[in-house]
């Protein structure tokens, strides 16, 4: 999908961006010249950590660190979900609502009727995959379908739990309060999520195919792979991470609220992009995404520490996204 990228009234060709970009990155990699853009997520995280350290003394201790990061656990899992979708060249504008739906299902059913809760989660997973199938089988832009789907998820979530409430099962709350020795639980989850994404997308043969679909779907199809099956795989993995994020929200907030997770939509997109993902698809950066998610949620916490109203949360996320893309595009312009 090419954007209005004809900035100098040059001849717009559909293949232009697809052919020039990979060769440029390849040339850079071959020349062995490190590109500072690859460190962008780490620079951003370092800046945020320094800012947190200045505003909240004591954040460096085990408990302080665990507390700071615990809020980002759900964001990390949700961002991984978004990463799989963006790798496919799509964008999921329904992810926040989907996480909210799972959160509400957990808070209302998991304690009393675990079977119903798990059944409902499986149905949600299938519905999410169906969304991906509709997008690709009918060749409709993912934005509109996912925006439509977000109303479906939110509507169902509000039907299940009209006002915030419910209760997370004790074992779930207990799990998220675990204090493993030396390494805080949020770090364990972050590394595990990143490692899974990395191994699945970067180290398995099928992962190469899935990334290739986002880069050049036609080539993958001509090589004899089923694109639809690939999209189903990506949406299914994304759904699993979306569900895990919903479970994490339940464990961390100890209750259900259909609306509390809605912010995850932009937050996860920003995390993926900050982490090094590309909107055009085909490029997965699992560890970058994790770093991006931590940075974005720490930026949110920082607002709280600075006693700024949560009203600014959305605006700040939008601003960070713009700044990151600005930083990236300036550097790339000069090289081009």
């Amino acid at each position: 999908m090419s954007m209005i990228d004809e900035s100098r009234e040059s001849m717009p060709t559909a293949t232009q961006s697809a052919t020039t970009l990979p060769s440029k990155t390849k040339a850079r990699r071959l020349s062995g010249r490190p590109d500072w853009h690859e460190y962008l997520p780490y620079i951003a995280l370092a800046l945020i950590l320094i800012a947190v350290e200045i505003t909240v003394p004591g954040a460096r201790s085990y408990s302080g660190f665990a507390l700071l990061l615990s809020a980002s656990t759900a964001a990390i899992l949700a961002a991984m979900a978004q990463m799989f979708i963006i790798t496919a060249g799509d964008i999921d504008l329904s992810l926040g609502a989907f996480v909210g739906l799972i959160n509400v299902l957990c808070a209302t059913q998991l304690e009393k009727n675990p079977a119903i809760a798990i059944g409902a989660m499986i149905v949600s997973l299938l519905a999410y995959v169906l969304m991906g199938v509709i997008i690709h089988a009918r060749r409709i832009p993912s934005i509109v379908v996912t925006l439509g789907a977000s109303f479906v998820w939110l509507g169902i979530a509000i039907l299940v739990l009209p006002s915030p409430g419910g209760e997370a099962p004790g074992w779930l709350i207990g799990f998220f309060n675990l204090n493993p020795p030396l390494i805080p639980l949020p770090v364990v989850i972050a590394v595990a999520a990143g490692a899974f994404g990395h191994i699945f997308m970067m180290r398995t043969a099928y992962g190469v195919i899935l990334r290739g679909m986002g880069g050049n779907a036609k080539a993958i199809r001509r090589a004899g792979w089923s694109l639809l099956r690939g999209y189903i795989a990506l949406y299914a993995v994304a759904a699993v991470f979306g569900i895990l994020a919903g479970v994490a929200v339940t464990g961390l907030t100890t209750a259900g609220d259909a609306n509390v997770s809605l912010d995850y939509t932009l937050l996860t997109i920003a995390s993926v992009i900050l982490g090094g993902g590309e909107f055009t698809g085909g490029k997965a950066a699992p560890f970058g995404t994790v770093i991006g998610a931590i940075t974005m949620s720490l930026a949110g916490s920082l607002l709280v520490f600075l006693q700024l109203s949560p009203d600014y949360q959305l605006g700040v996320q939008g601003l960070i996204l713009i700044l990151v893309l600005a930083a990236r595009s300036t550097g790339k312009r000069k090289e081009a």
């Binding site: 999908m1 939008g318 996204l321 713009i322």
Partner: peptide, 13 residues
């Protein structure tokens, strides 16, 4: 235009 953001993200941000 300037940041080459996809319209979805630019308008959302």
């Amino acid at each position: 235009r300037a940041l080459r953001m996809p319209p979805i993200i630019a308008t959302l941000a």
